[in-house]
Write a protein that binds this DNA or RNA. Structure first.
Length: 697
RNA sequence: GGGUGAGUAGCUCAGCGGUAGAGCACUGCACUCACAUUGCAGGGGUCACAGGUUCAAAUCCUGUCUCACCCACCA
């Protein structure tokens, strides 16, 4: 009674992957509630919800693959596994994407009005979300789709409100007017973490500030921003600077060029005596350090730049100019007056909006803030005490450094897309990270006391990118501790960053990104996963090359063909392989013993590597075992053993045993092909799916 | 200015104290018995540079250079 085998000579992922994914979805085994009884202890991961700003890139594919490997591995080990999918509304980022689309139609969000604009964003979000979730499926992710969440869905809003009022009542949220980062294009405040500094070639202008009582004497100030001169309310020198000691004692006043307002000369240790002339102009409204100094010395605050980035409260000639126009004009005017001493080339760090790359301004504005002192303290403790572990450990430093900086978090944004601040009369929204910070428990149903929350919180692992350790990870940790009294995850795996072959950042705008869908299309999902993981050797960057995916493709083909050899040998429908292969239980040849020993070693190594998040090592040992030990050596040897009556039966058993065990070990990494072959194995005692087979011991 | 990581075969990387390895690419031979997305054989490297420690260094120490990425209130 022979069964027909339907294995093509060459493995074709296109004929397999879609079908297998449908089979999995139908089996409902992604859902922990439908796992067999043996799966008791919970193991959970919530996916870092991708922003609904476009398609997934290869970094997402890498991260998703890592998580799927962990989930599939733990599932086979008998855990009640939940991998929860979702997407992030990504406030300012998504709004910007839609604004860019409008721009192509020569429209702005103000042309549409708020209501129409939000409608438009939703249209985009629905489309985008579908594509993203579809991409995860193509990659083979065993996500529980019945629990999919979005950070702006109705239940999630309840969590955000609850969190806001909790902080508010506790006195941690306060309203205040102070200088903040402002993006003139997005028309919103930004937190410090949402600013990127870019080095640019600028100038350093040396400007004379005449004494108020004696126009022939003056101090020289070096500045990179002459246009803020109108907002100056003092000049400052370092108290240790002997050059200016006498003048400070005399309490002299300077006359501000162009408008002749009198300003004092003060001392402050924040001034670097070695920079320029050692004299600093203090512009409290438009510089954070100047603002700090002004508080100490009770200096007034004069705003001269408005939210559009234009000059205000300045002489008529300047009124309404952009800062760039004003700068040019001021320099010319100072030169005419003989107040410009010299100009030097100087490299400056320009603050940019992290979403639209527009130069931002510092300006005083009324915003909502979250007091960080106690929360930061708590977050630090979570890691220093070992309740949360970073892998690799070196990233903990980044985390601690930021938490020690101790600034309050500006949580209000003046954009339209996001969670409304839940207070009367307010038209602002919350920083998108305020809602992201609640993700590990809000996604599980909080503030309801849900069954999922009880079972799956805290989660086991957070796998994410190093770029958002402070923006997101730190905030999730203190949020979890504040609201649930427990850390949100026990391990933070910081995966390597995928760069181009040239070592450059992958970027959509530069056209250097690589679309994982194209790789899946060309090589199959398994090959893509295998190739990506192959490169994960613990460094902080991966320079992506397609070569490894070619190798993944060849490897899949090898597995396929090894199976094509083994399966016909065991066509007997009554064949049953032993659960465990005890070396002494059968009459084994030397070759048999060697392959079984090598297999045993591989099992241990893969297990240990996965415990340590050493995905690359695991994959390499599997490759060497399967290709060289099994195919090159054992299968070749088995050909003669199968011809010999004395060894035939045992050889068959060893062949199928090693194949099956290999499929189990390989399944977390390359789930499609292994499942496809598993389903065709002519053996007794099979499970419904390889997904829930017992992990080899 | 501070920090992190990296510089090993043409390319991407492993090795991290004891005679230089993998994948891809390349050269030669072999399509009858799982697989030519294969098998066998082969070429190719003063392990960034300079010192030092050691019987022994790609591997440890010191310094230098180059690259990448973070962080920072040099106006």
């Amino acid at each position: 009674m022979k069964r027909k085998l339907v294995l093509e000579k060459v493995y074709n992922p296109k004929l397999v992957e879609k079908k297998i994914y449908q089979f999995w979805e139908k089996s409902k085994l992604f859902n922990p509630d439908h796992l067999p009884k043996r799966h008791k202890r919970p193991y959970s991961i919530v996916i870092p919800p991708p922003n609904v700003t476009g398609e997934l890139h290869i970094g997402h594919a890498l991260n998703a693959t890592c998580q799927d490997i962990l989930i599939r591995w733990k599932r086979m080990k008998g855990f009640k596994t939940l991998w929860l999918p979702g997407t992030d509304h990504a406030g300012i980022a998504t709004q910007y994407v839609v604004e860019k689309q409008l721009k192509k139609e020569n429209l702005t969000r103000f042309d549409l009005g708020k209501e129409k604009f939000i409608e438009r964003v939703w249209q985009w979000v629905k489309k985008c979300r579908k594509i993203i979730l579809e991409q995860f499926k193509k990659l083979g992710c065993s996500l529980d789709w019945s629990r999919t969440r979005f950070t702006l869905d109705k239940e999630y809003s309840q969590a955000v409100k609850k969190a806001f009022f909790y902080y508010y009542k506790k006195g941690l949220i306060y309203k205040g007017k102070r200088p903040i980062n402002w993006c003139p294009r997005c028309q919103t405040s930004l937190s410090d973490l949402e600013i990127e500094y870019k080095k640019e070639e600028g100038k350093l202008w040396y400007i004379k500030y005449p004494f108020a009582k004696n126009e022939n004497s003056f101090l020289i100030v070096a500045t990179t921003r002459p246009e803020t001169i109108f907002g100056d309310t003092a000049l400052a020198v370092n108290p240790k600077d002997k050059r200016y000691k006498e003048l400070v004692k005399k309490k002299i006043f300077l006359s501000l060029p162009l408008i002749e307002r009198e300003i004092p000369l003060i001392e402050d240790s924040a001034v670097d005596p070695d920079f320029g002339t050692g004299v600093l102009k203090i512009t409290p409204a438009h510089d954070l350090r100047d603002y700090e100094i002004s508080l100490k010395h009770h200096l007034p605050l004069i705003e001269v730049i408005d939210k559009e980035g234009k000059m205000i409260q300045v002489p008529a000639d300047y009124q309404g100019l952009t800062v760039w126009e004003a700068r040019e004009k001021i320099v010319k005017d100072l030169e005419k007056l003989g107040l410009l001493v010299k100009v030097e080339d100087y490299q400056v760090s320009i603050p940019k909006c992290y979403r639209c790359q527009t130069s931002t301004e510092i300006l005083p504005s009324e915003q909502w803030f979250l007091k960080m002192k106690d929360l930061a303290q708590m977050a630090k403790k979570a890691v220093s005490s070992g309740m949360v572990k970073f892998i690799p450990k070196r990233w903990e430093k980044i985390y601690f450094d930021w938490l020690s900086s101790g600034k309050d978090w500006c949580i209000s944004r003046q954009i339209w897309w996001g969670h409304k601040i839940p207070l009367r009369g307010r038209e602002e929204v919350l920083d998108t990270w305020f809602s992201s910070a609640l993700w590990p428990f809000a996604a599980l149903g909080w503030p309801k006391k849900s069954k999922d929350l009880r079972r799956f919180y805290p989660t086991d692992v957070l796998s994410t990118d190093r770029g958002i350790i402070n923006l997101w990870v730190a905030r999730m940790i203190f949020s979890g501790m504040e609201f649930l009294k427990k850390v949100p995850f026990r391990k933070v795996f910081i995966h390597p960053t995928v760069l181009t072959k040239e070592g450059k950042r992958m970027s959509k705008s530069l056209g250097t990104g690589i679309d994982p869908s194209l790789l899946i299309e060309k090589y199959g999902a398994d090959a893509t996963r295998w190739g990506i993981v192959w490169q994960m050797m613990g460094g902080q960057d991966i320079k992506f090359v397609e070569d490894n995916i070619v190798m993944g493709q060849k490897f899949c083909n090898k597995i396929w063909n090894a199976s094509r050899f083994v399966l016909p040998q065991v066509q007997d429908s009554k064949f049953k392989i032993p659960r465990k292969f005890k070396l002494k239980a059968f009459k084994l040849t030397l070759a048999d013993k060697l392959i079984l020993k090598a297999l045993k070693k591989t099992i241990l190594f893969v297990d240990k590597s996965l415990e340590d998040f050493q995905f690359g090592r695991a994959v390499r040992s599997l490759y060497n075992f399967f290709w060289h030990d099994f195919c090159d050596i054992y299968i070749e040897k088995s050909k003669s053993q199968l011809k010999d009556n004395a060894t035939r039966e045992t050889t068959k058993k060893v062949l199928i045993y090693v194949l099956l065990t290999s499929l189990k070990l390989l399944h977390p990494f390359i789930p499609f092909i292994t499942e496809q072959i598993y389903l065709q194995l002519p053996i007794f005692g099979k499970k419904k799916s390889l997904m829930i087979e017992n992990w080899p011991e």
